[in-house]
């Protein structure tokens, strides 16, 4: 009886830990599939040999174009290339109907954060992988994990629910920006990012 009684708090502790470490992350994030699959690897490197900036271009005025519009995809994909179901659907549902793909952007920042790509890419000479990881060599798009409370992508917080970074690109919160700026001895004012 004594042993059983002493197990009660241990069981409670274990339940709390299980709820916090296992149940909570599962409940917190909901996964949504991208509207259509996209193979970065087929376009870059040994695939079509394109660079990141061929599609995610920086304009002459330094403005980042973000995800390319459907007209840019249509330059090559006016007709399906290959016979995959994904390709057929992409061309028929989006390219031929001139309809933009409602991509779910893993790295989308809150509206109150202003991030100039041009300064980081051209001036600081940061590689795309520094913040976006190996996204450019992925063969498919993983499901978008959306935080049910904040509505943001899990990529903003990082893969570890505890907030422990495994890679430089794992997490895109303000703390991550600040720590990188501190490492490069480039402390900035609030107004630089919050316009």
């Amino acid at each position: 009886m004594t042993i059983t009684r002493s197990l009660v708090p241990i069981a409670g502790l274990a339940t709390g830990l299980f709820a916090g470490w296992v149940v909570f992350p599962t409940v917190l994030y909901t996964t949504v599939d991208q509207p259509v699959q996209f193979n970065h690897a087929a376009h870059t490197g040994n695939g079509a040999g394109m660079s990141c900036q061929d599609c995610h271009a920086l304009g002459q005025d330094g403005r980042f174009a973000g995800i390319p519009g459907i007209h840019q995809c249509a330059e090559c994909h006016e007709e399906p290339i290959g016979s995959s179901e994904n390709e057929r659907r992409f061309v028929e549902e989006y390219v031929q109907q001139n309809r933009e793909v409602p991509w779910l952007v893993y790295a989308r920042q809150p509206d109150n954060a202003y991030f100039p790509h041009v300064v980081h890419v051209h001036k600081a000479k940061l590689a795309c992988e520094t913040c976006h990881g190996k996204h450019g060599s992925s063969s498919g798009l993983r499901p978008y994990e959306m935080n049910r409370i904040s509505g943001y992508s899990r990529d903003i917080w990082g893969s570890s629910i505890a907030g422990i970074k495994s890679q430089a690109w794992d997490g895109m919160k303000m703390d991550d920006c600040i720590s990188c700026h501190s490492v490069h001895n480039n402390d900035r004012a609030c107004i630089d990012c919050h316009k």
């Binding site: 009660v8 409670g12 502790l13 339940t15 709390g16 830990l17 709820a19 916090g20 992350p25």
Partner: peptide, 10 residues
């Protein structure tokens, strides 16, 4: 104990 356990989680 559950509450304490939760406190030691994220």
């Amino acid at each position: 104990a559950s509450a304490a356990g939760i406190l030691f989680s994220p």
